[in-house]
Design a protein around this nucleic acid. Sequence first.
DNA 1: ATCTGTCTACCTTCTAGTAGGCAGATCGTC
DNA 2: GACGATCTGCCTACTAGAAGGTAGACAGAT
Lengths: 196, 196
Amino acid sequence: MSNLSNTSDEILASARNLIMSGGYNGFSYADISEVVGIRKASIHHHFPSKVDLVRELVKRYREDGQASVVTLEQNVPDELDILKVYANHWAKCIEDASRPYCVCALLASELPSLPPEVATEVTNFFRFISSWLTTVMERGYKSGTLNLTSEPHVEAEAFLATVYGAMLSARAYGKPEVFSTILSPALNRLKLTVSH
Amino acid sequence: MSNLSNTSDEILASARNLIMSGGYNGFSYADISEVVGIRKASIHHHFPSKVDLVRELVKRYREDGQASVVTLEQNVPDELDILKVYANHWAKCIEDASRPYCVCALLASELPSLPPEVATEVTNFFRFISSWLTTVMERGYKSGTLNLTSEPHVEAEAFLATVYGAMLSARAYGKPEVFSTILSPALNRLKLTVSH
DNA sequence: ATCTGTCTACCTTCTAGTAGGCAGATCGTC
DNA sequence: GACGATCTGCCTACTAGAAGGTAGACAGAT
């Protein structure tokens, strides 16, 4: 039956939304139970403990990201375009308030107080994004589509920091448009200035 | 008697450390009571509610920041140097683990789920840092000590995002040195390239 | 006959917060 | 200077509710 996976997906989705707004300690099984419409005890059937639930959530979050990256790289050849699509993805999520913040950004902020199993998954997520961005920078440098001023892995970390910092600022001011305001010049700087 | 202010300062200090690691919902009056060595009920004497405590904490955090900024601007004339001192302050705090994360960055991540009184103070903190950095950028542009490629307020937001994004990455990877790795090129870009 | 998903009912621990008492310091008044 | 009144800071003892989690029953599908 697909009811099983349906309910457990609903649980994960509502947990994701709740974490997105208040972090690991900002939600409870009771909160999920209200959203999904089942009893607390039934959630424990799908995810015995809160650690199990969030660990699985972050693991899937990373896997989904990895799948998206594969699709993105298949469809967009130009490296600058790849970075633009990535930035625009977040710009859209923030501006239409559908996913106004990265689950792993919030969990990473709380890292020292997270259960170790969850913390490990969160670190894995950041390592994945970072190493992916590094490959994009390297490729863009070699093929001459990106204008790098530092080593690829440094440019990758700097770009990631800009995206996540911009996300935080947008939330802090309550102004979604701040994200794009910050990202535009960052992307422009990576564009090759064509000499003509 | 100075006992009063001493204890209430100790309470604020321990709350700050606890929030720095796990956010608003990541600590309790019981946690503070253990650190400070007084009973839970005694904390309520100084701060009737958790909202009162954290609101005061964030307010003072901003006021302390404002005072530091005044001193900094009095002692350091060059705008690029000001930005360097600011970045180095955080680099040092992160690397010696004394204040490995900004209290307001953590609270801003949780903003949608914070009590409104606290949320307002957190937004105020970000507005203060942002408008201060904007004045630094403007001054540096006019006096020709900074190399800006966007409007001052955009450069200010971008710099702030880089600092806070780098802070997050350092925490996410568990590698304090990542902060400086990201900040160095960001500061270099703001340096005027002398034509000779 | 077993497995799956849900339920009710319950448990323990933790949460923020309250009531009220008590010791010591401070203060105005005689 | 002595005397009571008030204020301050802390205490013990308590509360109601929320937290994560468990036990066991039951219906329906396999």
